[in-house]
Simulated assay, not measured.
Amino acid sequence: MSKATSIFSAENLDAIRRHLESVGFVSVLHWHLHGARHPTPLAFSDFEAFEGYMKDYAKAGDAIDVWPFPTDNGERIAKGKIPEHDGSILQGGAY
């Protein structure tokens, strides 16, 4: 099993920011650790809106997948989990 990384890592955030600045859109799946529900599909055209959503709605342990839009499932831009308050990343989970 590979170790999960933070969606807030510099590498992930830089990749998302670069894509939004050069292309303009990303497609996001927000997988909720708690709540027993399907992932929330989202789209963003602005890095600050993406970052604001993550800070306001994503909880520790949630998983985030980011693709270019229009979506090409083979070319994911970033993948990571929301870290705990201490910066640790929950390993495992349903996803």
Rank of each mutant, 00 (worst) to 15 (best):
42 L>P: 04
78 A>K: 03
25 F>I: 05
41 P>I: 01
49 A>M: 12
53 Y>P: 05
79 K>P: 01
82 I>K: 13
38 H>V: 07
87 G>M: 05
58 A>P: 06
46 D>A: 04
95 Y>N: 13
56 D>N: 12
38 H>K: 13
47 F>V: 04
40 T>P: 00
2 S>L: 11
48 E>N: 11
61 G>E: 11
43 A>T: 14
23 V>H: 10
95 Y>P: 02
36 A>W: 04
95 Y>H: 12
55 K>S: 15
78 A>H: 02
52 G>N: 12
70 P>W: 11
54 M>H: 07
89 I>R: 02
17 R>W: 09
13 L>C: 08
80 G>F: 06
21 E>Q: 10
74 G>K: 01
77 I>S: 00
95 Y>A: 10
45 S>D: 15
75 E>M: 00
24 G>Y: 08
50 F>Y: 13
92 G>E: 11
73 N>A: 15
60 A>C: 02
85 H>L: 12
52 G>Q: 10
20 L>N: 02
86 D>V: 08
65 D>H: 02
34 H>R: 15
67 W>K: 00
88 S>R: 13
48 E>R: 09
2 S>C: 08
58 A>Q: 10
42 L>T: 04
52 G>M: 05
80 G>C: 05
28 V>I: 13
45 S>P: 00
69 F>Y: 12
77 I>C: 06
3 K>P: 02
89 I>G: 07
23 V>F: 09
44 F>Q: 05
41 P>Y: 02
58 A>Y: 05
67 W>L: 04
28 V>D: 03
55 K>H: 15
14 D>P: 01
24 G>E: 05
75 E>P: 00
46 D>H: 10
43 A>E: 12
5 T>H: 04
29 L>Y: 13
64 I>K: 02
62 D>Q: 08
62 D>T: 04
9 S>H: 06
3 K>G: 03
64 I>D: 03
4 A>D: 12
37 R>H: 12
11 E>K: 14
13 L>N: 02
63 A>N: 06
59 K>P: 00
37 R>M: 11
23 V>P: 00
31 W>Y: 11
19 H>P: 08
74 G>M: 03
94 A>G: 08
36 A>P: 03
34 H>G: 07
33 L>R: 14
75 E>W: 01
